[in-house]
Amino acid sequence: MKTMMMAAGLLMAAATGAQAQSIVYNDFSNTNGLKLNGSAQATNDGTRDVLRLTPSGIGQAGSAFSLLPRTLSADYGFSTRFTFNIANNYNGGADGLVFAIQTLSNTVGGSGGGMGYQGIANTLGIEFDTWDNGPGDDFSDNHIGIDLGGSLSSVVLDKNLPFQLDGGKDITSWVDYDGTTGKLDVRYAADGIRPILANLSYNVNLADVLGTTTAFVGFTSATGAAASTHDIVSWEFRDSFSPIVTPAVPEPATWAMMILGFGVVGSALRRRRVATTARLALA
C-alpha cells in the first residue's frame, strides 16, 4: 500500500506541475510559437533536435523569442528552466548566450561581445559569457551574470564556475523571480539537478525595468572573430513565480526509477491476487 501511495503521489505531482506550465519545449523538433531571428534555426546536432542560436562561424548573431508577448502575473513573477550546450569552438570560442525578457520586439541586439543582447532597452538578461571583454566582465572568459537594460556590465557576476561554459557539455539553469519580494534567483548545474541554494541573487523591481506586464521571452547569442555553436536543448517557462523543481522530461535515471517503482507495484498486486486466490481455494 505504501508503494502504491508513493506512485500515486508522483503522478499527482506531475499533474500539478503540468498545470503551471506556460511554454515547454522538451526538444526543438517543432518551433511553433517562436520567432527565429538572424542566424537562429532549429537543427539536429547528430543526436537530437536543438535550437541553434549561432553556428560556429565568425560574425553571427541570432535570437529566438516567443512569437507573442507573454503576460506576466500581477506581481511580475516568473520561473524558467533551460538546458544549453556551447561547443565546436573556433579561435578560442565566443561569445556566449543570454536568456532575456524584453519588450521592444522580436529582435537581435549587438553582435560579437554584445551576445545579441546589448542595446535592447527595457530588458532583463542572464548572460552565460565565454569571452573576456575587460572590466565589465571582471576580466573573466567564463562567467554568469545578471544584466539590465541591454548592458553587459553585470550588476552581479559569478566567475568561479565549477564547469567550463563552452566545454561541450549540457548545462542547466533555473531562473526565478518572486515579484512580491523583488528577489531574482539564478541557479545552474552541469548534472541537471537543481541546487538547493541560488548561485546568484539580486533584488530588482522588474516592473520598473520592463514598464509593462507583457514581454517577449527567449534567448540571444552572437559570435565575433571567435565562434562557437550555441544550442538550446530544452526550455520551460512559467508566467508566474512557480519554481521548476523537476525536469520537464524525466532524465534516464528517473525513468529507470519510475519503471522500477511501477514494477514493484505490479509485483505487489500480483502477490495480493495470488494470496487472495489461495485463501478462497482453502475456504
Rank of each mutant, 00 (worst) to 15 (best):
T3G: 15
M12P: 06
A13D: 13
A13H: 06
A18N: 02
Q19P: 01
Q21E: 14
Y25M: 03
N26I: 06
N30A: 01
T43C: 06
T43Y: 08
N44I: 04
R48N: 09
V50E: 10
T54P: 02
P55I: 02
F65T: 01
S66T: 10
L67N: 09
L68P: 08
T71N: 09
L72F: 03
S73T: 02
S73W: 01
A74F: 11
Y76M: 13
T83M: 00
I86W: 04
A87G: 00
Y90W: 02
D95N: 05
V98Y: 12
A100V: 15
A100T: 14
Q102E: 09
S105I: 00
G112A: 03
Y117N: 09
G119D: 04
I120G: 02
N122W: 01
L124M: 09
E127N: 12
F128I: 06
D129R: 03
D138V: 09
D138T: 06
F139M: 05
N142M: 13
H143R: 10
I144P: 13
I146V: 10
D147P: 03
D147H: 01
G149A: 11
G150R: 01
L157I: 13
N160G: 15
L161G: 08
G167K: 10
G168F: 07
K169C: 01
T172F: 05
T172E: 06
V175D: 00
D176M: 11
D178Q: 13
G179T: 04
K183Q: 14
V186K: 10
A190M: 10
I193Q: 15
L197E: 15
A198F: 13
L200V: 15
S201D: 04
Y202M: 06
Y202C: 12
N205F: 00
L206I: 02
T212L: 01
V217Y: 02
F219V: 04
A225W: 09
D231P: 02
D231A: 01
I232K: 02
F237G: 04
R238H: 06
R238Q: 13
I244H: 03
V245P: 13
T246R: 13
A248E: 07
M258V: 14
L260Q: 12
G261I: 06
V264N: 12
V265R: 08
G266I: 04
S267C: 06
R270S: 11
R272G: 10
R273F: 08
T277H: 13
A278R: 15
A278I: 14
R279C: 08
L280T: 09
A281I: 13
